[in-house]
Amino acid sequence: MTPTPTPTVTPTPTANVTPTQTRTPTPTATQKPPGSSGGGGGGGGSAPINPGWSTPEPNPTPTPTPREADSGSLHLGETGLVDQVARIHAADGIATLTIAEGIRAVDAAGNPLRAVTLATIDAADVPAAPGAYVFAGYACIAGPEEAVFSSPATLAFTFTQEQWDTVYNGSVQGGLVVQRYNRSAGTWEEVPTTVLPETRSVTAEALHLSAYALFVAAPGDGAAQAVAADTGPEPTAGREIPYALLIPGLLALVIAGAGALLYFRKGEP
């Protein structure tokens, strides 16, 4: 008997599905804190951990700002010295008193000074000027009177161009000077003074709180007269002959002429 052949089933080919490529996200690098090392071993490349703190930046040291006031309080440190610059202005805007750091200021009783004032003085209230000087028209008073500084403060008279032309016009070098009125002695006393034409100002050293005024050297003062007296005698040439000596000389000349005339007449035949 002939066997019946069994049919062979041919499998249907299955289509291969191409897998979709998934993009792997690239990790974002985390900024390293200041001072951390960048070490590097092989591992999985994990990002460094942020410790949650940062190094603070140093703050700049502030510069002391001068006080600007018509009457100012002095800021004193633990040692009693002025530890902040104080600048006090008079009401006229011309006079200014500047007290620097490191100065010890005490009142008449020796107690620490905590406030300073500066006011203008009317010309009528200014004590009489010294004989060799003329009052220039500007004066002020710093108070409380009789207070003193361990180092001089700076008193300045600063002018507009028009005022400066009036004050400085015609004055010789060194002619402008600031003086302090010593009330107990009743006299004016010169203080070290600097004239600054480029800034139209005159500055002076102030050790005491008192009245201060600006003076200019008087023309023809004692010093000028002394110079004139030391010039010596004038030369004879060109000097006028005194009138009292002229008359006797003329009389002698007339008499001599008359005698000569008589002599010649006697000799005639």
Rank of each mutant, 00 (worst) to 15 (best):
T187A: 14
F149T: 00
V177H: 02
T154L: 11
S171D: 09
F157W: 04
V202I: 15
G186M: 11
T166R: 15
T187P: 03
Q179Y: 08
T154Y: 03
Q163G: 03
S184T: 14
T194H: 09
R183K: 12
W188M: 03
A185D: 13
R200E: 09
R180D: 02
Q163M: 08
R180Y: 05
V172E: 07
P197K: 11
E189M: 15
G174H: 05
S171W: 04
E189R: 15
Q163A: 08
L176W: 01
Q173E: 13
N182D: 15
V148D: 02
V195Q: 05
A204Q: 00
S184G: 12
G175C: 04
F149S: 00
V177R: 02
E198R: 10
S151I: 09
S201C: 08
T187R: 15
S150H: 08
T203E: 08
P192F: 07
T166K: 15
V172Q: 06
P152W: 05
L155E: 01
W188E: 01
T194W: 08
V178T: 03
D165M: 13
F159I: 06
T203D: 07
F149L: 06
T154G: 04
F157S: 01
R180T: 02
V202R: 03
D165K: 15
N182C: 11
T193M: 10
G170R: 12
S171A: 13
F149E: 01
T194C: 06
P152E: 09
Y181D: 03
N169V: 11
E162T: 13
S201Y: 01
E189I: 14
G170Y: 09
F159L: 07
W188C: 01
G175W: 00
W188K: 04
A156S: 14
S184L: 14
E162C: 08
V177E: 03
L196E: 12
E162D: 12
V191P: 00
G175Y: 00
V177P: 00
T160C: 09
F149H: 00
V195S: 04
G174A: 08
R200V: 05
T203Q: 10
S171V: 13
G186D: 11
G174K: 07
S201H: 05
S201L: 06
V148S: 06
Q161T: 12
V202P: 01
T199G: 07
N182K: 14
L176P: 02
V202H: 01
R200T: 07
A185G: 11
S151H: 12
T158F: 03
G170K: 11
W164I: 05
W164R: 07
R200H: 13
F149M: 07
V177S: 02
T166F: 11
L176T: 02
T203M: 09
A156H: 05
T187D: 12
G170I: 06
Q179A: 13
F159E: 04
S201D: 06
E205N: 12
R200I: 06
Q161H: 12
P152D: 11
A204W: 00
T160I: 08
V167W: 00
A156R: 14
P152M: 09
S150C: 08
T166Y: 13
P192Q: 08
N169K: 15
Q173C: 05
R183L: 10
V172W: 05
L155Q: 03
V202L: 06
S150I: 06
L196N: 14
R180G: 05
A204L: 04
F149C: 02
E205S: 10
E189H: 13
Q179I: 04
Q163R: 08
Q173G: 10
S151Q: 14
